[in-house]
């Protein structure tokens, strides 16, 4: 506990997140069209942006791992994948909660939603695969290849889902069906920006902790020679 409170990033993240909560729930005016439910977007939009950034980090560090064979990049990849998945879960749950009152449906076949869900599923299986891999460099290489496949697949999925939703128009009812802009005033955009920054700091903090954990796990495996028990 003492270690955590001494961590500067932890203190900064807590401080910024508290201000963020104040801005979202008290300071920013309620949006006229959607009402109080629009406040979910100050969490949903930053969280989904950062989960996408996390997946880009996974893909880039997997490429670097295959090129340089440096274990550092493998540890960054697993750390970023797990935290990206955590953010992705928050993104899906908060999005579903927002969509029901605003669009009139919990879920619809819109291209961005389909792509996000499929990408989420690919990275769920990436993490499952990692847990079943043989330990050592072979497993790390295979994991890196799977992460790159996921990243290569994303534009294709988006393109296909986009064409698909043109052929089968998704059902969108309710207040947001006509006017798509949910951050109309400059105050709203400011809170959105601040929220993105504070979730980013929190992401970096979590990434460092998860990286250290992975580092310790691999040290442990080196000592015990790959035996888990």
């Amino acid at each position: 506990m003492n270690n955590i409170t001494k961590n500067k990033l932890f203190l900064l993240s807590t401080f910024v997140m508290l201000i963020n909560l104040y801005l979202i729930f008290i300071w920013v005016p309620t949006e006229a069209n959607q009402g109080a439910i629009q406040r979910i977007l100050y969490i949903h939009v930053p969280v989904s942006q950062i989960s996408m950034i996390a997946i880009i980090v996974v893909a880039i560090s997997s490429v670097l791992f295959l090129l340089k064979k440096n274990e550092f990049w493998d540890k960054v990849a697993i750390a970023s994948a797990e935290i990206g998945l955590l953010y992705g879960t928050i993104m899906l749950l908060s999005g579903i909660l927002w969509a029901k009152p605003v669009w009139g449906v919990w879920w619809t076949g819109e291209a961005k939603l389909t792509t996000a869900l499929i990408l989420y599923l690919i990275y769920v299986s990436y993490i499952m695969f990692r847990n079943y891999f043989p330990t050592g460099s072979q497993g790390q290489r295979i994991a890196a290849i799977i992460a790159i496949i996921g990243a290569l697949d994303t534009p294709l999925i988006y393109f296909a889902a986009n064409l698909w939703s043109e052929a089968h128009p998704p059902i969108v009812l309710g207040p947001a069906s006509e006017n798509d802009s949910s951050f109309s005033s400059s105050e709203m955009r400011l809170v959105w920006l601040f929220s993105t920054i504070s979730f980013m700091i929190f992401f970096v903090y979590l990434l460092r902790i998860r990286y250290k954990l992975q580092d310790n796990i691999s040290k442990y495996f080196k000592i015990t020679n790959g035996r888990s028990n």
């Binding site: 499929i118 599923l121 695969f129 496949i149 996921g150 294709l156």
Partner: peptide, 10 residues
């Protein structure tokens, strides 16, 4: 299948 099916969605 868990990895294959989401990847062949396109």
């Amino acid at each position: 299948p868990m990895l294959f099916l989401p990847c062949i969605i396109p």
